[in-house]
């Protein structure tokens, strides 16, 4: 009997111990969820003009300009993106549409107006560059919080802002990063800084929210920077003409509008 009691006690200790460490992960997970929603699911929909400046190691600049329309079907869940390219000239009028489904692969379509071609694009390249910039596809539409394990490293200050410093490691093997350290603002939960490390634990990329503004009551980063430390180059992204809750309908994200930009939103 005594032996059984000891076993029971041991099981109980393991359970409580396990529980408490799980609770710790849970808090980190909860913060990352809030952060993800603040960063990628603000309001129900949104539109912005985006200017991307890519500066290479020799200081040479390349500019991409596009309008971006977003609709959330479910917070943290299914989401639709529509991108209308303006510059440079060789991609002008091109449209790109994504149906993002967090548990599955995204569905993506590209329309090339000069040849009236609708092309489906495979979505197995989340870690690859978005239009030649230092941002990846995943940086643009977000990596779901449930794909990584999260741990609070500490609570600290970053440039006078109170932040949680959270370490994320991919649950499944992932090419994009092996470890990510995020500095999440305790007030609005937006990441102020993110550091991406590779397999060898070398710092590869650093994201910083260069400017955060309140627009239509929603706090959002309006200038974002991604620096590739290894390649010594960086990309600045400036969001202007931001509007939220403009009443985008789901049917905008269909082949009809892929071929005929919704001019009520995109001038």
């Amino acid at each position: 009997m005594k032996f059984q009691k000891t076993i029971m006690l041991l099981i109980l200790i393991v359970m409580i111990g396990g529980q408490s460490s799980y609770a710790g992960d849970n808090q980190a997970m909860e913060i990352m969820k809030k952060s993800h929603l603040a960063m990628f699911y603000a309001a129900d929909d949104g539109i912005a003009e985006v200017k991307m400046t890519i500066t290479n190691s020799r200081g040479k600049e390349r500019i991409r300009e596009f309008a971006m329309l977003r609709l959330d079907i479910e917070d943290g869940g299914k989401q639709m993106y529509y991108t209308y390219f303006r510059k440079p000239h060789d991609v002008s009028r091109l449209t790109f549409m994504v149906h993002k489904i967090p548990e599955a692969s995204d569905n993506r379509w590209l329309y090339v107006p000069s040849v009236d071609l609708v092309k489906r694009i495979s979505a197995d390249d989340k870690g690859s560059s978005f239009v030649g910039s230092d941002f990846t596809y995943e940086d643009v539409s977000g990596r779901h919080w449930s794909e990584d394990n999260h741990k609070i490293l500490k609570e600290d200050k970053l440039d006078d802002n109170d932040v949680y410093i959270i370490e994320s490691t991919p649950i499944e093997k992932y090419k994009g990063f092996s470890r990510k350290v995020s500095y999440i603002d305790k007030g609005h939960y937006l990441p102020l800084k993110e550091e991406y490390y590779n397999k060898k634990n070398e710092l590869v990329r650093v994201y910083t929210a260069e400017k955060i503004e309140e627009i239509d009551g929603i706090i959002t980063p309006t200038i974002r920077k991604m620096e590739n430390v290894k390649k010594k180059q960086y990309t600045m992204v400036e969001f202007t003409e931001i509007k939220f809750n403009i009443g985008v309908e789901e049917d905008i994200f269909s082949e009809r509008y892929l071929k005929n930009p919704p001019r009520q939103f995109i001038k």
Partner: peptide, 11 residues
């Protein structure tokens, strides 16, 4: 018919 499969697109 065209659809995503095996991390790519089949048609």
């Amino acid at each position: 018919v065209r659809m995503p499969i095996f991390g790519g697109i089949v048609w």
